[in-house]
Design a protein around this nucleic acid. Structure first.
Lengths: 334, 334
DNA sequence: AACCAATAACAAAACGATTTGCATAAGCAG
DNA sequence: CTGCTTATGCAAATCGTTTTGTTATTGGTT
C-alpha cells in the first residue's frame, strides 16, 4: 500500500474528506475536538497532503527554475564552480525564504527534457539574442526573467548586469595602469554583456586614440581556443600591452598564451577579466576582475520573477559592479 | 483564458481527449493523419501537456532534491562556493541526463517549508546521527540516500565518503613529512566523517606513540571559532607540529591562528584539511587536502537514489579519496 | 453471406486534493 | 411553536491528464 491519502484519513476518522481537508487548511471552521482527532489519526497514519494534488488544484507548483544558455564549457567549467553555481546558491536561499523551491537546469537541456517539469517561472542567466530557452518558455507561457538583458527584448524583465559600466571600469583601470594598446576578446555569441563590452570598447579606443583590436571567439572553444587565438594576436601585434578578456575561461587561455610567448604579466601585458571566480583568483598572477555582486543579483532576480508571476510590474534596484584590482594589471612604474 | 488544456485541443479538433492524449503519448495507435492534425492544432493553440497533471496521474514528480544538514556557515560559506555546490552541479547534470530535475534545498529549511514540495527522493549530504531531515523524509516515506553514511543507520543507502581512508591518507602524509605531534580538530556534530576521523586519529596516535589531542568545535562557530580554539591549543601545547583540520572553514581559522602566533607553516606547523575547495586552494600557504572526487560521488548518489526509488537494491562503487599535497605540509628538511 | 481480426475513436474512471453550495441540528428570541 | 442564526459536516464538481473497457467501421476469409 502506498502513501495514505486524505480519504484514508477520512475513513479512519469516520468523517468526510471535506472535513479533513478543512481541518488541515483551516479554510473553514471545524470543531476543535474533531480537528484534534483528525490530526492525531493523520499523524498515526503518516499522512501528509500530496503537494502534486495541491499544485494541480491551485495551478501553482511553488517551484522556479534556474537555467543558463551558456555552453557547458563556460557555464560549468572543469571545476564546476562558477558564475552559475554562485547564483544558484543565493537564488536557492532567496527562493526558499519565500517558500519556493529552486530547480537547477543544467546547460543546454533538450526541449523534450524540459517539458517534463513544471515551473511557475524561470530565471535565465545571460541569454543571447533569440535565445532558444527564451523561445521555449515563452511558447509555454512560463514567466521568464533574465540576469543580463535579452538583446532587443526590452519587454522581458531583467536584472541588469551593468556590462557597460563594468567594461568601462576595467578599461579605465587598465589605462590608468599604463596599458596604451588594449585589445578585447569576447565571446562570439550575442549576449548583452558581450555586445556592451564591444560597444564600450570601441568608444574607449576612439576616445583614447588607439587602434581597436576586438576579437570574437566561440564560447564553446573554451580556454584552449582562447590560448591559440591570443597567441596569434600577440605575435601579430606586439604593440599590444593590455588585454580585456571578460570570459574567464578565455582569460585563462590568454594568460597561458602570454606565458608561452614569454610576455611578462603585468610587465609587458596587463590582463583583466570580468567574473571574479576561481579562475581569476587562482591564476598566476591573479587576475583583476569585477565583483558583480552575484548574490544580490540572484536575490533580486528571484524577487523580480515572483513579482512577474504575480503580474506585478516591479523594479528591483541592483548594485553596479565594483573593481577588484589584482596583480595581473597593477601599474608598472616604467 | 489560461493555458490551453487537452480538452481545448480536443474540442478544436472535434475529437475526444482520449485521442489527443494518445496522439501525444503514443501509448495507443491513432491514425497518422489525425495525429498530424492534432499536433498542428496543439501547436497553433500553444498547448503543452501539464506536467503537474501528469505527475498526479503517474505518481512520479520527476524531481529529486539535494539537501545538506550542515549549518549555513559551513555548508554555503561566505563565498557560497563549496562542497555542496560542487555536488549540486554534478548531481544536476546526472539527474538531467536521466530526465529528472534536481531541486536545491538550502541549509536548515523549516519543515513547513519542505512540505510544500514533492520529490520522488532526496540526496542528503553528510547527515548526522538522528538527522532531522532523515526523520522528516522517512516520516513522509520519501526515499533517501545520503552522501556519507548516517551514523548507526546501515539500512539507509549511502555513498561512502571513505572518511577513514581519507583520514589515514592525511595522517600518513603529515607523519611522513615530519610532523610528530599531530592534533586533530573536527566538528562537534556526529557526522560519520567526524566520527571516523576521530577514530582513525586515535588509532594512529596510539600506533605512532604520540599523545593524542582531539578537539571538537561546533560547526556553526566557523572560521572565527576555530581561530580562537587553535590559538589556545598552540599556546598550551607548543610541542604540536602537525594539525589535521578536516573542516575547511576551521582550517582557515587554524592558519590564521598560526600566523598570529608567528608559527611558520609548514616550518613549525604542518596543516592539512579535507575538502579541496576554494579555501584550501587560496589559502596562504595553500592547504594539503583530499580530492574526494565529488562529481563522481554525486553521479553515483543520483544513480543510487533512482535505483532505490525503483525498489532495486543496487550498489554503486565509488572512488576512494586521493591526496592533494600542497605547501602547507611539505616536508621540511630539518 | 457470415465471421473474425484489425483499426480508429470514444466514454468514463481514476489520481489526491480543494472548494462551493447544501443539509442537519442546536440555540435562542419573539 | 415559528423563524432566524450559528455550528458542523457532507456531496459533488473541479483541476488536466492517463488508462481501461467498448463501440463502430472496415477489410479480408471462407
Amino acid at each position: 500500500m502506498g502513501k495514505p491519502t486524505i480519504s484514508d484519513v477520512a475513513k479512519a476518522a469516520g468523517l468526510s474528506v471535506t472535513t479533513v481537508s478543512h481541518a488541515f487548511s483551516g479554510r473553514r471552521h471545524v470543531d476543535p475536538a474533531t480537528r484534534e482527532r483528525i490530526h492525531a489519526i493523520a499523524q498515526e497514519l503518516g499522512y501528509h497532503p500530496s503537494s502534486v494534488a495541491q499544485q494541480l488544484r491551485s495551478g501553482r507548483t511553488g517551484t522556479i527554475a534556474l537555467a543558463s544558455s551558456m555552453p557547458f564549457a563556460v557555464a560549468a567549467g572543469p571545476s564546476r564552480l562558477g558564475f552559475l553555481m554562485e547564483i544558484a546558491a543565493s537564488a536557492a536561499m532567496a527562493a526558499f525564504s519565500r517558500d519556493i523551491a529552486l530547480c537547477l537546469i543544467p546547460p543546454q537541456p533538450s526541449p523534450a527534457n524540459l517539458n517534463q517539469m513544471g515551473f511557475d517561472g524561470v530565471i535565465l542567466v545571460e541569454p543571447e539574442r533569440d535565445d532558444p530557452l527564451v523561445r521555449h518558455f515563452e511558447a509555454r507561457r512560463t514567466p521568464v526573467v533574465t540576469i543580463g538583458k535579452v538583446p532587443e527584448r526590452e519587454d522581458i524583465p531583467a536584472i541588469d548586469l551593468y556590462s557597460a559600466e563594468g567594461t568601462r571600469l576595467l578599461l579605465d583601470h587598465l589605462w590608468e595602469n599604463g596599458a596604451r594598446q588594449i585589445a578585447l576578446l569576447t565571446g562570439a555569441s550575442e549576449r548583452t554583456s558581450h555586445l556592451e563590452a564591444r560597444r564600450i570598447y570601441a568608444e574607449f579606443a576612439a576616445t583614447q586614440g588607439f587602434s581597436p583590436q576586438a576579437l570574437l571567439l566561440d564560447e564553446a572553444k573554451g580556454e584552449g581556443g582562447a590560448k591559440e587565438l591570443v597567441t596569434h594576436l600577440l605575435r601579430d601585434h606586439p604593440e599590444i600591452n593590455g588585454l580585456l578578456v571578460p570570459v574567464d575561461a578565455f582569460a585563462s587561455g590568454a594568460v597561458a598564451a602570454a606565458k608561452d610567448l614569454g610576455k611578462s604579466i603585468p610587465g609587458e601585458l596587463s590582463i583583466a577579466t570580468r567574473y571574479d571566480g576561481l579562475r581569476a583568483k587562482l591564476s598566476e598572477p591573479p587576475l583583476t576582475a569585477l565583483d558583480l555582486h552575484l548574490s544580490q543579483l540572484a536575490e533580486a532576480a528571484v524577487a523580480l520573477l515572483l513579482a512577474h508571476i504575480e503580474g506585478a510590474p516591479g523594479v528591483t534596484p541592483v548594485p553596479v559592479p565594483s573593481l577588484v584590482p589584482r596583480r595581473s594589471s597593477l601599474r608598472r612604474e616604467g
